[in-house]
Nucleic acid binder design. Structure first.
Lengths: 189, 189
DNA sequence: AAATACACTTATCAAATGTTAAATTAACTT
DNA sequence: AAGTTAATTTAACATTTGATAAGTGTATTT
């Protein structure tokens, strides 16, 4: 069930046969129906997720408004890092936007494996590094770009998201209102 | 010279005596005059910096405009992570905004120590995790807050920066023009 | 003191975005 | 297919922010 995911992992960082087996034993699979929360607001992040198929987002509420922090495609690491690393409850939720199949790994088990399998620790450290770099790039997109420019960047960088996600989620992800997004889309490019 | 920095490190993650000594041997100190670049655009990030005193920023040029990505106070890890983790030249520079004293660590030496001193690897992994979490929080600030709200948040979170950095740098950090920042400051709070 | 450069503010107008409400379209239920 | 709900677009107006230029203040140099 998790062969595809392990193959993906090994592209990022090599694993010994025994590490691969140990890691495989931690991976669980689930089917999640559209619109359901994978993790809810208030829960402390103790599980890492990867989609096998579908689309997910992380969101939270700010002054009563639903704000989408990010979209996640298959094989992307999905975690609320600010909760995981601090061990504090997250104010964010993870929601599946389509019927999805999900791989999950409990961090308590994973961190235990770190002690005996250094290559596993390296693998996940790398994945978090990559997530960190993407977050830095997102700041560059938000900073000093107009709403229209941010929209154009999204069409280039994540066309799949644009095709699948409701516009209201895309709007808050770009930091604008849905009305404003509609206007931008109406313009001839 | 580096005792203060090591004490700071040990607050983040414990180090054995031998690790502490090994790490100390990598730390170099420099004095850098105001306005000088610590690292220049085009260089690949191969050094980690920590200020002993002073203030620094990371900046880059976007369409000819100077954009400040972040400000860094003493004891903060300063690195251009997107360059370090990818091993690619950075389009960003690190600049000192006041006469500063700087500790630096060459990553090639540091990563070599990782092999034999796991606690050192853990320490720096933690520091990067913390930097990652701060980056996530910065996105929350940029997303769906007005310029004025972002300014108010900065006055709360980093009053030191506000006191020391030129307004033009603060403006681009907030993603607005200097004129706009001036208007916001003129308002009665 | 005069001259220069730099940092910051203010004024004016244009453009972009937010707010609210209504209209249209698409999706889903029965 | 009709009815219902949700998603998206459009319109009208208010507010914010950008762009440009001019003005003020401060520091430095000569």
């Amino acid at each position: 069930m998790s062969n595809q995911l392990l193959a993906h992992f090994k592209q990022i960082s090599s694993l010994t046969v025994s590490s691969e087996a140990a890691l495989a034993s931690l991976i669980q699979t689930h089917s999640i129906p559209k619109n359901q929360d994978l993790q809810q607001i208030g829960q402390t992040c103790k599980t890492l997720y990867f989609l096998k198929k579908g689309l997910a987002r992380i969101y939270y509420f700010q002054d009563g408004n639903d704000v989408t922090e990010g979209f996640y495609l298959p094989f992307c690491l999905i975690a609320r890092a600010e909760s995981l690393f601090a061990g504090m409850p997250s104010k964010k939720a993870i929601q599946v936007l389509e019927d999805a199949e999900v791989w999950s790994i409990a961090t308590s088990d994973l961190f235990f494996l770190y002690e005996t399998h250094r290559d596993i620790e390296r693998l996940f450290t790398r994945m978090f590094e990559q997530a960190y770099v993407q977050t830095i790039q997102r700041i560059e997109n938000l900073q000093f770009h107009t709403a229209e420019e941010r929209y154009r960047l999204l069409t280039q960088d994540q066309p799949d998201v644009l095709r699948k996600a409701p516009l209201k989620f895309i709007a808050s992800y770009l930091g604008i209102t849905q009305v404003s997004l509609s206007r931008i889309r109406a313009k001839k490019s």
